[in-house]
Structure formats: C-alpha cells, structure tokens
Write a protein that binds this DNA or RNA. Structure first.
Length: 290
DNA sequence: CCATTAACCTGACAGC
DNA sequence: TGCTGTCAGGTTAATG
C-alpha cells in the first residue's frame, strides 16, 4: 500500500493510538521480514513511550523515549490495522473496531503491538517486502536507509528550481527519474503516472530534456495529486487499507493509472496506453502528453 | 558513476 | 476444479 499518500494515511490513523502512548507488549511472529529484526527487537520496544510518529519518504518513524526510532516500511502489501481493546472506541478523530477473534494470529500477521490507548496494532504483510528496524534517533539521517533519500515533495523546498537541478543532464526517462527516491522521496508508480498526465509530460521524455515550464507544471501536479490522495485516504487497489480498516478512495480519481484502452479524460481524442519502463507499467495518453 | 534488469515473496486473476 | 502464466503499490544487488 505503499506510496507516500498511503503511508501518510496510515500514519494519521495510527497517531491517536501511538503518539504519546506506551507500547505495553510487542510480539514478532517470525524472525524476519525483508530483513531480519534487530537483536532484542521486542524487548527494546516494550515499555517505551512513542514521543512522535513521523513519516519520511515511504517510512513511518516512531521516535521512542529510549532514544531509538522504530522504523517501519510497508513494502508492497504491508498493513497496520488498529483494533480497540474490548469494544469499539473513538480515540481522537478515529473510530476503531474491537479486535475480531484471532486478530494478530493470521498467517501473515508478523508483528503485534499492544498500547495503553488501549489498542492492538497488527502488522500484516503477505509479500513480506516490508521491514521494521530500530535506529538511534540522533543518527537517523546518516543511517543507510535514509542517507541518500531525496527531498519531501510536499515540503516548501520542493520547487521547480530544485527539480530542474535534480533532473539536469539525466538521460533516463522522466518516469524512471521520478521513481528514484534519491531525487524525490515518496513517489511510486501510481502517482508518477498521474502527475505526468496532469502536467502533460510524456513519460518517455528524457529527464534532462523536460522544458522549464513543464517542470513547473510537474511540481504543481505532484503536490496537488499527493495532497488530494491523502485527503481521500490513499488509493486501494488490493492491499491498502487505512489503520481503521477502511479502504482509500483515490483510485476513483485516477486519470490514467489502470485505464489502458480507455478514452483520455482530458477531452482529447486519445486513448490511454500502457507501456513498460524499467520493468514497471506506465499509463499515459500519447496524444496530450508530450 | 550511470542506467537497466532480475530477484525478493505471496496472492489474485485470466485463460485453458 | 485445477493447472499455468502473468501481474501487483517497492527496493536493491548484480550486471553491462
């Protein structure tokens, strides 16, 4: 469920049961996800209070009162499901169902957290491309996972000027460049396709050859599509769910993604086409994206 | 250094 | 019903 809007949606849903709360119990139900859990993972989390729950790129970051940060990546299919203890509860602005029988013991339920909210949080990830680890908060930016990650696209620093410099001289197609987390953090296959369509840029155009006015339009389109998607709770294709268990809604607003063979939505006579770039599907309108 | 491809793992779905 | 092949929102090691 994994691009920036989906991760942000999950973060917002976790906030009421995590931030300011204590992890009363933590259980790992296998030895690894994409990478092994660090030594004494559960013990280092148990009894710790979450000071803040942040997001960087597609990672969730829970800063603990121990000086460590719990780093969570949802991979392709990871979910964080929140269940209220005992009965359905409203906590903050969210309503959480009570845990159904067996919640946290499923085949792909890999980590279970209990908090004093009181709530149970179940990390489920059937493809196991996700990861969890612990990093010293003070050295997070220098960690292998984060040292090469680029700018946050929703930050004020993400401007046409920044993107122009980042794309300068690049010979890879703009579609592939935008998926590179070192240039811009958090974009994935869906939102890159959608942003390029909204900016009228061909995904095949070489990154270094995108014109100045197109770059400006692209920056605007990226910020808008990400914000709109967050407001819609992300996009649910198959795996994404909000922390409450509800699906996202932004998939109903796709203009090109998954629309191969259907008419272009920008009142042009074109038809949405699917091509493969760097091993990933790209959807675009050959008529109005140049 | 740069760019592309294959691999990681499981499940859903289409076609036979 | 069941088999096979294809595809999926991400990341990264290996390769050219």
């Amino acid at each position: 469920m994994p691009e920036l809007p989906e991760v942000e949606t999950v973060r917002l849903g976790l906030l009421p049961v995590l931030e300011g709360h204590t992890l009363t119990q933590v259980e790992t139900r296998r030895g690894d996800l994409r990478i092994p859990f660090p030594r004494d993972f559960a013990a280092r989390l148990r009894g710790r209070r979450v000071k803040t729950l942040r997001r960087r790129a597609k990672y969730l970051l829970a800063d603990l009162d121990s000086g460590e940060t719990l780093v969570i990546h949802l991979g392709m299919s990871g979910r964080m499901s929140v269940y209220a203890e005992g009965k359905q509860r409203r906590i903050g602005n969210y309503v959480y169902d009570k845990a159904p029988q067996g919640a946290g013991t499923g085949k792909h339920d890999h980590v279970v957290f209990e908090t004093d909210a009181p709530a149970r949080i179940v990390f489920n990830d059937h493809r196991r491309f996700g990861l969890m680890t612990l990093v010293e908060t003070a050295h997070l930016d220098d960690d292998k996972l984060f040292k090469d990650i680029g700018i946050e696209p929703l930050s004020p620093g993400f401007t046409a000027k920044y993107l122009t410099a980042a794309l300068d001289g690049k010979k890879t197609p703009i579609k592939s460049a935008l998926l590179d987390q070192r240039l811009v953090a958090g974009l994935g296959n869906i939102y890159v396709c959608e942003a390029l369509f909204r900016a009228g840029i061909s995904p095949k155009r070489l990154a270094g050859a995108v014109k100045q006015d197109q770059i400006a339009a692209l920056v605007t389109a990226i910020k808008k599509v990400l914000k709109d998607a967050i407001a819609a709770g992300g996009s649910t294709l198959r795996d994404h769910a909000q922390a409450t268990g509800d699906p996202g809604n932004f998939q109903h607003h796709f203009l090109v993604y998954g629309r191969e063979g259907l008419p272009c939505k920008s009142k042009c006579p074109g038809t949405v086409k699917r091509i493969v770039q760097a091993g990933r599907s790209t959807f675009y309108c050959p008529k109005c994206q140049t």
